[in-house]
Every structure is written in structure tokens, then in C-alpha cells.
């Protein structure tokens, strides 16, 4: 585990999380959440949890983004806050 790399990616994760909840466009929020999941996956790969990172790469960054996009497509794209 390399702590310098860990700190950088942890910062990126927090930035992506903040951006995902503050953007007004819901499709953009879904894509930013996908970026958040992928950064999280890198963080877990650094921490040596390869199986968990693999799961997060396929589940969090892959399928859950598709679910979000499908739900946004079936509802509305704009949000008030």
C-alpha cells in the first residue's frame, strides 16, 4: 500500500462525491457517480482488496450507472437542487 497515492485518490473520490450531489443535471450526476465509483475501485485496488475492486468496477462503475441512466430516461433529467 502506497499512502501518497492513496491520499491523492481519496481526495479525488471526495471531489467526485461532492460534484455528484451538487450538479443540477441528473444525467451528469449519474456520470459523476460512475467516476466516483471508479475512483473508489482504484482506492480499493491500492489497499489490496482486488476482489472488492473488481466487483466495484463491474457493479458500481458499470451496471449501477446503467440503472441510473435508465431511471433518468424514464423520469426527468432536471433537478431543482
Amino acid at each position: 500500500m502506497i499512502w501518497q497515492l492513496d491520499v491523492i485518490i481519496l481526495t479525488l473520490v471526495i471531489i467526485c462525491g461532492l460534484a455528484a450531489i451538487s450538479i443540477r443535471d441528473l444525467l451528469g450526476a449519474a456520470v459523476l457517480f460512475s467516476a466516483y465509483s471508479f475512483m473508489m475501485c482504484l482506492l480499493w485496488a491500492i489497499m489490496g482488496a482486488v476482489d472488492v475492486a473488481f466487483t466495484e468496477a463491474s457493479v458500481g462503475a458499470g451496471v449501477s450507472t446503467v440503472f441510473f441512466v435508465a431511471a433518468v430516461f424514464r423520469t426527468t433529467r432536471s433537478s431543482k437542487d
Binding site: 455528484a20 458500481g60 433537478s79 437542487d81
Partner: peptide, 17 residues
């Protein structure tokens, strides 16, 4: 605090991760 339901769901996922 967020008003939109999809935003709330994203918040729930961030808490889980």
C-alpha cells in the same frame, strides 16, 4: 437535505461506499 429523489439515492450510495 437534497430535494430530488435521485440525488437522495446517490447520497445513499455514497454513504454505503
Amino acid at each position: 437535505a437534497k430535494n430530488n429523489l435521485v440525488k437522495k439515492i446517490i447520497g445513499m450510495n455514497i454513504f454505503q461506499t
